[in-house]
Design a binder for these strands. Structure first.
Lengths: 311, 311
DNA sequence: CAGGTAGCATAATTTATACTTATTCAATAA
DNA sequence: TTATTGAATAAGTATAAATTATGCTACCTG
């Protein structure tokens, strides 16, 4: 069986100083205390560690071996614990971040690259997964934080918001978008409920929740069946379909800013109020964010803001 | 500062099992006990180790690091301690032996070689030094045991015999030796006190203690000054001087058996009683000899015996 | 050689803390 | 709803670790 580990610390000092008296001083103990520790350790490992010769103690071969064993551990532990517990003074280390595929693909490469220019000791492990998977990884401590949006994650974590700490990162606007041609030819530029509901739709999920929500938001009507002419998992593909004038699709405004500017894609707003999706950093509530995490999140937010202002 | 090392063991189990309850079972504790240990450890290292989420605990990054640190130590310690404390079933490992130069040179190479044929896991570190140095090394735990003889070591350790455990190894006879020519021509084969005391002497020490002892042994007279024509530190050189007929010298019988046989060297015995020097294994009294040590000593004794019987 | 000292061991007492039981709490499953 | 699970907390107890006091032995010193 394993001996009492604290005795090993006592042993370490006694061996190092070749003296129980001095070890006692080092350990802020009295000499009998040290003596008892060594005696008990010897009985625990059933081996004599020191030969007691009048005034001096002579380590046995077993003591030599034991010391070789505990020395590196004892000596490293102090500084290692220090490194673990001391608050960072600058961001470093690995950041394990989860994000939805589309969002992650779009923003992480450039922003991480920029971040590393400033903090080159930070490394990244980005997981692009489904929201439920990301939350699962978060729950199991496999991620430091995740980027999630209200719509894709609401079932998963807005049901138990007490578990999470949610730091708003940005807002995106869900727009119903169609190509200029589609808007002009098929819709005749009309944005009434009747016109819209009969259009062709493209979606990237099997259940068009956001599309439903969009209609509810603007017309307070729940649509059970849309004319979905294309369901494709890649959002990039969805946008291409829109560009080709296949139909209408819900997308995030920032993904099509350029094409809105140039008028190639038309965003459809029946009323002024927008469908807003809150994108947030999500962490476990009980976890105190590290300096690295906070710094990165602040950096990320700033970058996103400047990107938004480009609009 | 270093945390309580025993808590690290508790932490190891908790981390491994990701459960305080199960760790408690493994450690033969109750759940609150484990919980308190972890809490105290966290306060000792001023770092949170687990995020408590309703029923499950999620290790933090600090816990990951700490675990990586303690894991190898905890996992190796058990078996390593086992190896240290389990009695050997066969001789192995390093034997650190001290011996006087002349004796060591003569006997150790062959005997160690023979020993290793039988016990090939035993290795040797032989120190050939002055007796007082050897005893010093013995006292400092640098030797497992030493080979010493009564005459050269008597001041050093027969003054405090309680410190040592002395295992007789062999006896050698100190003989006063001269070449056949010297014995016949210079001494005219006379061995009376008057003849002997006026002869030429060769010695390998500055103080001819043994020579004095020899005369005291046979004639009960203390000689203050001998006619020492040659003092040379190498015993081999001393023997060569004797062979060349330069004079008489004290040597050990076994070193010149061959030449006594063939009559080239004459051993001088005024009376039947021999001057006997006891050669012994000397160890620290409080040290229990290992199996390896005992086996080697027995082997050594046997070898010396058979060498003697060759006489 | 008495007298003092240094270093460790041992005994007895006190102090600290580790471990326990009992209870509470929150989340989950039935 | 109720039962169950896993953990935190509180309080009491048992155990172990400190302490003080003392003893031992070798060693040094005048």
């Amino acid at each position: 069986m394993l001996p009492d580990l604290n005795r090993l610390k006592v042993f370490y000092h006694v061996y190092l100083l070749q003296s129980m008296n001095m070890a006692a001083k080092d350990l802020h103990l009295t000499q009998p205390g040290v003596s008892q520790h060594i005696k008990k350790l010897e009985s625990e490992i059933k081996t004599s560690l020191f030969i007691r010769c009048h005034k001096k103690i002579i380590p046995t071969r077993a003591a030599d071996k034991l010391f070789d064993m505990v020395k590196p551990f004892i000596e490293n532990l102090g500084s290692a614990i220090g490194n673990i517990s001391k608050p960072m003074d600058h961001p470093y280390g690995l950041l394990r971040i989860g994000a939805p595929l589309e969002f992650g693909k779009t923003y992480f490469p450039a922003i991480c690259h920029a971040f590393r220019k400033k903090y080159n000791q930070v490394t990244f492990r980005i997981r692009l997964e489904e929201p439920d998977q990301l939350l699962d990884m978060l729950n199991n401590g496999l991620l430091d934080f995740a980027v999630l949006d209200y719509f894709s994650a609401k079932d998963q974590f807005f049901g138990r918001p007490e578990l999470y700490k949610i730091e708003p990162l940005a807002e995106e606007i869900f727009v119903l978008a169609g190509s200029k041609e589609y808007f002009e030819n098929k819709m005749k530029k009309k944005v009434s409920f009747e016109t819209l509901v009969s259009m062709d739709f493209i979606t990237d999920e099997h259940e068009p929740v956001i599309l439903k929500h969009w209609f509810w938001h603007y017309f307070k009507k729940s649509i059970s069946k849309f004319n979905i002419i294309m369901a494709i998992e890649s959002h990039q593909a969805l946008l291409n379909c829109v560009r080709l004038g296949m139909g209408l699709a819900i997308t995030a405004d920032h993904l099509i800013w350029n094409e809105i500017e140039t008028g190639k894609i038309i965003p459809i707003f029946p009323f002024k109020e927008k469908v807003i999706n809150k994108i947030s950093f999500v962490q476990l509530r009980d976890k105190k964010p590290t300096l690295t995490e906070e710094t990165f999140q602040a950096f990320f937010k700033k970058q996103i803001k400047t990107k938004e202002s480009l609009k």
